[in-house]
Design a protein around this nucleic acid. Structure first.
Lengths: 245, 245
DNA sequence: TGTACATCAGTGAACGCGCGTTCACTGATGTAC
DNA sequence: TGTACATCAGTGAACGCGCGTTCACTGATGTAC
């Protein structure tokens, strides 16, 4: 008992320190940009020596990889939760019966909300890479990336049958998509045709673009009400798909 | 005569070296990201010593500022040229009679084309800043920024009277915009109401977002035909504004 | 319960590196008489 | 046209800095008998 409890404590302390290192790294990035993530700066901030971090991460790149995985997972959790909640509140039946406009809106607001609350995380995932960082071969967060990807496809899938006809014909074929994308999307939504996947990409492009603009401060220079703009864009998107709000 | 010609040569050499420094800096950024812009790397590439550059730029930040100004101007030139050409080819009368859908399409393709041809320039202007770079107080390229801004407003202004009614009512008021933005837009288009400026922002958000996604490689992982996606998005945008293509 | 040993988080000094920037200089190019 | 001087692009050595990473170590915490 005592032995296990003691071991547990060591492990707990270790986990806490690991978490603090990551938190400090993100804090530094928030105030100083991606190039502020240095082992020495993190250690300085935590009152340690730089090489103490080597007890937790073999290398600086390993730390960045862990950071990206964490952040990506948090994003996936946020948007998945919004999807689930929009399904629950809409109707009690299966998800395909829930009003797709509401799902898109909920997902979009969750995405934007997460990005605004974690701008450094957004930059870490979608912006310029950390200087000198080399991602491991299979990418740092394959599962979270898959979840976000499938989440967007789910929006398109839910909306597909209700969209107005003009949205449904596109010149996209299966071979216009990345095989990796199809590996993620097709098993989850076997009924969705190429034009449906193209629709997912359009929704994604729309939302990501708008949020990126805001996170990088290019909207702040132009409007003091970016949330109005976002709502307005979103309404137009839903409307252009022919979905009732 | 001989004297002036000689002086001219010195000046020409100087201008050429200045241009080569900038070109080399952009080349480095293209291959190594924003953090590859270092005086030593540029000098190395040019076969000079690093401090030779101090003969041309007082400081590294001055160089970056000049770089941004150049690049921004090139972008402004590209989209302004597309605007002018779309006006000339559309009809022979005043620009307000030219089909606005064509103008938006032309502008958008010019913007995307420039960005794809100069991805490092796009990142320099719209992406994460160069590590450690501090922009001068009034921004590095006020005039070019103004031109791009007015260009987008011109698209909205040209489209305004033809848009479908739903586009014309928005909850934006004059006080929702940045004063700097209004200073640029209002003198050029005194007739454009707040909802028209909001429309300009929507168009801008749409196009910028899509192009940023492509430049940063987030589209490449999903489709092998990003130009199809762009065309399709553009068609939907024009359609959602109620403009005939 | 007490003692001997193993584990392991963190230290402190050092390495080699690339950076921006300064300094005193050299040598070629252009200028004035 | 020839000579004395000014200009000025570029050199080479040096500065102080922060970085990632390595090394041999210390001292506290946990383990086994």
């Amino acid at each position: 008992m005592a032995a296990t409890r003691s071991t547990g404590r060591r492990e707990r302390l270790r986990a806490e320190t690991t978490a603090e290192i990551k938190r400090t790294a993100l804090d530094l990035m928030r105030s100083g940009g991606p190039d502020a993530i240095t082992l020495r700066a993190i250690a300085r901030e935590m009152g340690m020596t730089a090489n103490a971090i080597y007890g937790y991460f073999a290398t600086r790149d390993d730390l960045v990889t862990a950071l990206i995985a964490d952040v990506y997972t948090a994003l996936a959790d946020a948007v998945d939760a919004a999807w689930a909640a929009s399904g629950a509140s809409g109707a009690s039946g299966p998800s395909s019966r829930v009003a797709p406009a509401g799902r898109i809106t909920a997902w979009a607001h969750a995405f934007r909300g997460w990005a605004l609350a974690n701008p450094e995380g957004f930059r870490l995932i979608y912006g310029d890479p950390v200087p000198g960082y080399r991602a491991p071969e299979d990418g740092p967060a394959p599962d979270a990336a898959r979840r976000v990807c499938v989440g967007i496809a789910a929006l398109a899938d839910a909306a597909w049958s209700s969209t107005e006809p003009a949205c449904r014909d596109s010149d996209f074929g299966w071979d216009d998509f990345d095989p990796g994308l199809l590996d993620k999307v097709r098993p989850a939504f076997p009924e969705l045709p190429p034009a449906g996947v193209a629709l997912a990409l359009r929704i994604w492009g729309h939302l990501h673009g708008l949020v990126a603009l805001e996170i990088y401060g290019h909207l702040r220079a132009q409007t003091s009400a970016p949330d109005k703009l976002f709502r307005s864009e979103l309404a137009q998107l839903v409307r252009s798909l022919g979905l009732a709000a």
